[in-house]
Nucleic acid binder design. Structure first.
Lengths: 218, 218
DNA sequence: ACATGTGAACTGCTTCACAGCG
DNA sequence: CGCTGTGAAGCAGTTCACATGT
């Protein structure tokens, strides 16, 4: 049974997908260091999980290992890339050419693995037409027109909070099915559009909660 | 039973904590609009969850509502702030004065709610001594000395991936118990230190997975 | 002998449904 | 009567443990 067929059998948990990302990162590290095989136990140790978890995660997509031996590093790398959709290149647009967008573009080889920025938009006359990381910032008015022609796959939303929902609505209407949101608001989107949010304020609040709920000495 | 005592009874799920953050954001919005009371149903609708989930989340910390009526907006806001540890101010240091750190500081009133930046560090001679958002960038050599004196509560780690683990080790050794990591690596920390990671590459990969696993037409 | 692959058991989060109370 | 608060039921994700294959 091939991995794509298997994947469609049952909904894959988000936690599984996150761990696959993690394993992939380790595998690339191992690959670079010339390692030939790797065990579920080793992957687990690095990822802070258990070997059973690693094997279960992979089992949703097929059987990639050799009993008594482990997994071939290059093979498993390739398989996970395929599973995650990283064997192809995705066209990404950035909407909102502020500081976050800028940080993004230079973030640790961020857009290496199959993500290619095809356009950057803003609505500020001060920014439109200016160069931006080998692109020229476009007027966001042209979002719909450009999208029809260039068919980007993913939109990264880095506009101010107040504008986020309205901008998302336009992105959705234009037919883009995946959005990475950096605005600190909860967005509403139809079920066929996947929205992932990175909300730094929420992460900090999680730390705050952890700090006051640690077991005080005494 | 007061909320802090109750909270310590049982470990609170991370998902619950995330939703509390979300509810708080909605409550602040309602408060600003002058609303007096709010039902679990309304909070659920805005947060994309169910009213039972909202009530269960709150029930871990006490009973804050009035039957037949709902929750007092100002009261519930205050209670959640207390629960989350946002009634106090946390001292935050930023380690790594690159683009991400800069984006962070201006990110939608990011450091309003109880988070106060007390120092910014870098190791680059080009940056040390330069002004940075009402601070002067300090030499990271002084991290330990400063921490002993100024006792920051949270460290935001925005150094390059290669330096992240070593820098975290220093932060941990200096006695800081909460870290928000932006480097795209899996970090190892002792169990009494809470590390939350924001990994944008991983989020993008999640979108990639969602895109190739959508039910194709035909 | 050793590490995978996987049903079965378990744990814990979510949803249900209704008693309790304003 | 309406909405909360909460045991109980349901479900999903994790862990266990062992049969399986090399």
């Amino acid at each position: 049974m091939n991995s794509q067929a298997r994947a469609r059998l049952k909904r894959i948990a988000e936690s599984t997908v996150r761990r696959l990302s993690l394993y992939l990162r380790f595998l690339e590290d191992f690959e670079q260091r010339g390692l030939e095989t790797i065990s579920s136990d080793e992957l687990a140790r690095r990822g802070g999980t258990t070997s059973a978890q690693v094997r279960k995660d992979l089992s949703f997509f097929g059987s990639f290992g050799k009993r008594g031996l482990g997994y071939s590093v290059p093979e498993l790398t390739t398989r996970i890339r395929e599973i995650m959709g990283l064997a192809q290149t995705w066209r990404v647009i950035i909407v909102g050419a502020g500081k976050i967008g800028a940080a993004l573009a230079q973030y640790g080889g961020f857009f290496q693995r199959g993500f290619h920025i095809t356009a950057v938009y803003d609505n500020s006359p001060n920014k439109i037409g200016k160069p931006w990381d080998s692109h020229v910032i476009r007027d966001v008015r042209f979002l719909e027109r450009d999208t029809a022609a260039e068919r980007p796959d993913i939109a990264v939303l880095t506009v101010p909070a107040e504008a986020a929902q309205a901008t998302l609505d336009r992105i959705v209407k234009a037919g883009i099915k995946a959005v990475l949101n950096f605005a600190p608001v909860q967005l509403q989107a139809p079920p066929d559009v996947t929205v992932r949010s990175v909300n730094m304020a929420m992460e900090l609040e999680g730390l705050s909660f952890a700090l006051i709920n640690r077991d005080q000495p005494g």
